[in-house]
Simulated scan of single mutants.
Amino acid sequence: MTGFEARQLWLDWLARERRASRHTLVAYGGDLTDFLDFLTRHQGEEPSMASFAALRPADLRAFLAERATRDGVGNATRARQLAAIRGFLRFLARHHGLPPLALAGLRGPRVVPPAPRPLTPEQALDVSRAAGDVENTPLLSARDTALFTLLYGCGLRISEGLALNVKDAPKAGQALRILGKGEKERLVPVLPAVAEAVAAYLRLRGGALPDDPLFLGARGDRLDPGVAQKALRTYRRLVGLPESATPHALRHSFATHLLGAGGDLRAIQELLGHASLSTTQRYTSVDSVKLLETWQKAHPRAR
Rank of each mutant, 00 (worst) to 15 (best):
L156I: 10
L156M: 12
L156W: 02
I158V: 15
I158Q: 05
S159L: 15
E160A: 11
E160C: 10
G161Y: 01
L162S: 06
L162M: 12
L164R: 00
N165C: 15
V166G: 03
V166I: 14
V166N: 04
V166D: 03
V166E: 05
K167T: 13
K167E: 15
K167Q: 14
D168T: 07
A169G: 04
A169K: 01
P170V: 10
K171A: 15
K171W: 06
K171V: 15
A172G: 12
Q174T: 11
Q174Y: 11
Q174V: 13
L176A: 00
L176Y: 00
R177D: 01
K181W: 13
K181A: 13
K181D: 14
E183H: 15
K184G: 03
E185H: 06
E185P: 14
E185A: 13
R186Y: 02
R186W: 02
R186P: 07
L187V: 09
V188Y: 00
P189C: 09
V190G: 01
L191F: 12
P192N: 07
P192D: 08
A193S: 15
A193M: 12
E196Y: 03
E196M: 04
A197C: 02
A197R: 02
A197V: 04
V198E: 00
A200F: 02
A200P: 07
Y201V: 10
Y201N: 01
Y201W: 08
R203L: 15
R205A: 05
R205H: 06
A208I: 09
L209I: 02
L209R: 15
L209N: 09
P210D: 05
L214M: 07
F215M: 06
F215W: 00
G217Y: 02
G217M: 09
G217I: 06
A218V: 14
R219S: 12
R219C: 06
G220I: 13
G220W: 06
G220P: 08
D221M: 06
D221H: 14
